[in-house]
Design a protein around this nucleic acid. Sequence first.
DNA 1: TATAAAGTTGACTGTTTTAGTTGGTTAAAT
DNA 2: ATTTAACCAACTAAAACAGTCAACTTTATA
Lengths: 161, 161
Amino acid sequence: MRLTTKGRYAVTAMLDLAIHAGNGPVSLADISERQGISLSYLEQLFAKLRRNELVRSVRGPGGGYQLNREQQDIDVAQVIDAVNESVDATGCGHTGSCQDGNICLTHHLWCDLSSQIHDFLSKISLADLMARKDVRSVAERQNRGHNASFEDSLISAKVTV
Amino acid sequence: MRLTTKGRYAVTAMLDLAIHAGNGPVSLADISERQGISLSYLEQLFAKLRRNELVRSVRGPGGGYQLNREQQDIDVAQVIDAVNESVDATGCGHTGSCQDGNICLTHHLWCDLSSQIHDFLSKISLADLMARKDVRSVAERQNRGHNASFEDSLISAKVTV
DNA sequence: TATAAAGTTGACTGTTTTAGTTGGTTAAAT
DNA sequence: ATTTAACCAACTAAAACAGTCAACTTTATA
Ligand code: FES
Ligand code: FES
């Protein structure tokens, strides 16, 4: 199993997208600056997120990305799966064959663990994360010194630029 | 976070050790053959397991490794930690500083996930695994064609070779 | 219509980790 | 003395990770 910066970046970026939704599309350049993630790396990640239909893109000036579903309908497991191709703790991809075709001694343990992790992550939506106090305070900090504050972006929702 | 074959091998090997305990020390060569794990790789893993006092070694002919505690006092989390140095899902090592010194947007999420995984794995001991039907049947299969059957090894416990 | 902002794509790179291998050296039992 | 097996250190091939770079397409707007 691998949960590295790739998956973490993806979730962080999606959360950033959720937080700054309402002002039209969010550009990767903005996310890059706010979250400190390489722009080119974000491009790779969003290519996968788009293929998995978690985001949609708007090209051209003023373009960027938007969530393709409601915030409560996107959970963390989906995001990680999209960039990571599975949060699987088994060595056999659930086929039960890492002992020259046979099941190994600990196969069921890793199956259990996998579903444990997946359950936990799939119960957390972007909306849930948005509601957390710690997330909101970090988001506010990140917006200080930028074009718009967090409060602004909440208030000015739907106002065309 | 990383849970790869390294951690899986370690748990599998420890479980093999637990299953074949009672006949005196178990050699890495036996584990290697039964579990299909490279002998040299096992040596590296057991060096770490020994440093973490999960196993003790007996050198010389007839030597090998033994569990250093009761089976119910060794849990899966301890084994993985020993070879992996932490099952940590955060990018900052719990220090809260992967945003140039500051806490990132998703820090708490990864902290929660880390403790979730650790909790799950630390509640499973080698004794628990031994008791599982799927483990016992795999162990029996692995012992067919070898020097001693699983039943034998249970019965002939304490009988010096 | 020209320009610039943005997404899209592919190839490329340095580093780290994995999963080993090779080749020895001790320690203990026969 | 020989054999068995743990111990140890250095090395390696392959993969994954994290990121860069360059070229291209689409589209808003001046
Ligand atoms: S992990 Fe599935 S067979 Fe080993
Ligand atoms: S994961 Fe801890 S600060 Fe980002």
